[in-house]
Design a binder for these strands. Structure first.
Length: 548
RNA sequence: GGGUCAGUAGCUCAGUUGGAUAGAGCAUCGGCCUUCUAAGCCGACGGUCGAGGGUUCGAAUCCUUCCUGACCCGCCA
């Protein structure tokens, strides 16, 4: 990152001197295995479009010009094929990265990318009709990790859980509880058309009867209402506990019901109608979604007078933007993707300046003994998040969830995740951290202190040293990319690369038996690596153990 | 029929938004523990980036047409 910036600035100056237009992109390549510690600059566009001279001549001219401007950071410039210049940076330059890591400590990798931008992330938001399952876990891990990454890059982040406590699903929940309750008391009630079948429904029934002995003598509607409220409260409590066990944070729990009761939905209706974006037809109230690129107009209030889910969702998003967020991130299950165009249309129609981004999380295929386990909340058949966490632990689950792009399918193989082996990338990364800690402990016991930045670190000059230094330099860049693309998996991949380099380093270089000066320098380097590993893991919400 | 996303090594997937000879992990095969944690390291094997066409100095990446898969297309939530 530092190296890229440095080169970019140098090049820009030279291009200006030569009176060329700065090309849209000059790409600066990280080194490959063979050219450890080098950086390549690709000048093809510049060569072909701007300067009408043979590529080789241009490259030579540039190399000289860069050399003249350099402050001693660049050791060597090579012309490597048409349009490519390879730069080798000097030892001093690489060491300056270490001082940065050391000085900034935990703050290394932070940036001001999102300074002054307020972001809201809404995630999980599962209907309080049953316990969280493994699919919710993926959304939870994503949202939480994203909030950490965005905070690291300077955004002001607020996390929210939207409680769908006003809709038909809640009514069904009430009915289900009452139905089970009657059954348990020996009645033979009529089966509701749809009902939740999980065991937890019976447990809730027991709670209801303990509080309301006379529940069965009550008016049906009233009884359902009571069941519904107790059920919701109880399930919501379970959800909170599960999320807490998973280390996931929500700042605000926002109730759909409160939105309806405060008349916000009607307000939004009025606003839309005023701007001519909604109309009455066939006794229903419609939103002109087609005007914003959706396939068809969408109903907001049905002819029977009920409002749709979409209606309260518009009001909700209206409310979000009125709270002043510059960016609103919604994390949804991928089965809602058909819903994206109309929601975008609605937000556009509301005319707020903020931006809405929707992340879709695809299903998680839970696999046990090579067989896929199917899930369904209605039928009460699922692997709950809690069960999975109890089996594999929070760290392993999180790492797996975050190891893929959110919109790709994910196989969650229980047997594999449970394994504490090299098949499991979590342990690979954690092990790297633990190894360093262990070494530092041993070093201290034997009287080797790590160097600090004022010491001579020139011994860090082997390819292995350079490889680690370069990776440390790439950390801030990685975090920024992850923030820009809302993609925590980039951090996960980075950590695996860094861990891999560390393990290689560990095997090839016996640190404690090196000569004292080199030993101290290396201990210092490894301390910095451990710091970055821990820092990266914390962005994923995964622990960095000091021993394993 | 329309829409969204995907198709990269035997399997699971990356690929920093158009750059050098396309990368990891797993699986398979072969090496490395009397020294800091072998939960590790090294090597080998493995590719028509779904197919065709186009855009340009240059394409896994952008455009287009097909093929295949997942999901969506209600006055449900």
């Amino acid at each position: 990152m530092k190296a890229e910036c440095y080169l970019q600035n140098l090049l820009q100056k030279i291009v200006e001197e030569k009176k060329w237009a700065w090309p849209e992109k000059v790409s600066i390549e990280p080194p490959n295995d063979k050219q450890y510690g080098d950086l390549a600059v690709n000048l093809a566009m510049l060569l072909t479009k701007e300067a009408q001279m043979p590529p080789r001549q241009i490259a030579e001219g540039l190399a000289q010009a860069i050399h003249a401007q350099d402050k001693g950071y660049i050791e060597k410039i090579e012309i490597a094929g048409p349009g490519f210049l390879n730069f080798t940076f000097s030892q001093n330059f690489w060491l300056s990265i270490l001082s940065e890591v050391h000085e900034l400590g935990k703050a290394y990798g932070s940036s001001e990318l999102g300074k002054g931008t307020r972001v809201q992330i809404e995630y999980v938001s599962a209907n309080p009709t049953g316990p969280l399952h493994i699919g919710h876990g993926r959304g939870a891990a994503l949202g939480d990790s994203l909030s950490r990454i965005l905070e690291k890059t300077g955004f002001e982040v607020e996390c929210e859980y939207y409680i769908n406590d006003a809709g038909r699903q809640m009514h069904i929940l009430g009915e289900s509880i009452l139905y089970r309750l009657r059954q348990a008391l020996g009645h033979k009630p009529q089966k509701p058309k749809e009902y939740y079948q999980g065991e937890y429904i019976q447990h809730i029934g027991a709670v209801v009867i303990a509080q309301y002995e006379d529940i069965l003598d009550m008016d049906e509607a009233k009884a359902i209402e009571i069941c519904k409220n107790i059920g919701m409260k109880s399930i919501l409590q379970t959800i909170r506990e599960d999320l807490q066990a998973f280390g996931v944070r929500h700042d605000i729990w926002f109730s759909e019901k409160s939105l309806v009761e405060e008349g916000k939905v009607d307000e939004t209706f009025a606003d839309l109608q005023k701007s001519g974006l909604a109309y009455e037809q066939d006794n229903a109230f419609w939103f002109k979604a087609t005007q914003f690129g959706d396939d068809k107009d969408r109903v907001l209030r049905k002819s029977n007078g009920d409002t749709t889910y979409f209606a309260s969702d518009i009001a909700y998003h209206d409310n979000k933007f009125k709270r002043g967020f510059d960016l609103v991130v919604d994390i949804w299950g991928a089965d809602h993707h058909g819903y994206v165009p109309r929601m975008s249309a609605a937000v556009e129609a509301l005319g707020h300046s903020g931006e809405l981004k929707m992340l879709l999380v695809k299903l998680v295929n839970l696999i046990e003994n090579g067989v896929q386990i199917s899930m369904s909340t209605r039928a009460g058949k699922f692997e709950t998040l809690k069960d999975v966490l109890d089996e594999v632990g929070s760290d392993a689950a999180r790492f797996i969830f975050l190891s893929r792009k959110s919109d790709s399918n994910l196989d969650f193989d229980l047997n594999l995740v449970k394994q504490k082996s090299m098949d499991n990338p979590v342990y690979y990364v954690q092990y790297a951290h633990a190894r360093i800690c262990s070494m530092l402990r041993k070093a201290e016991a034997e009287g080797h202190a790590p160097a600090n930045i004022s010491h001579n670190l020139c011994d860090l000059d082997t390819p292995d040293d350079r490889e680690l230094l370069l990776l440390l330099d790439q950390f801030p860049n990685t975090v920024e990319s992850a923030a820009r693309n809302l993609s925590p998996h980039m951090v996960s991949y980075y950590l695996q690369t860094l861990a891999s380099s560390l393990h290689k380093y560990y095997t090839n270089n016996h640190v404690l038996s090196a000569d004292p000066q080199r030993c101290r320098a290396r201990l210092f380097l490894l301390k910095c690596v451990a710091e970055v590993l821990a820092s990266g893991l914390s962005l994923l919400g995964v622990n960095a153990p000091e021993s394993m």
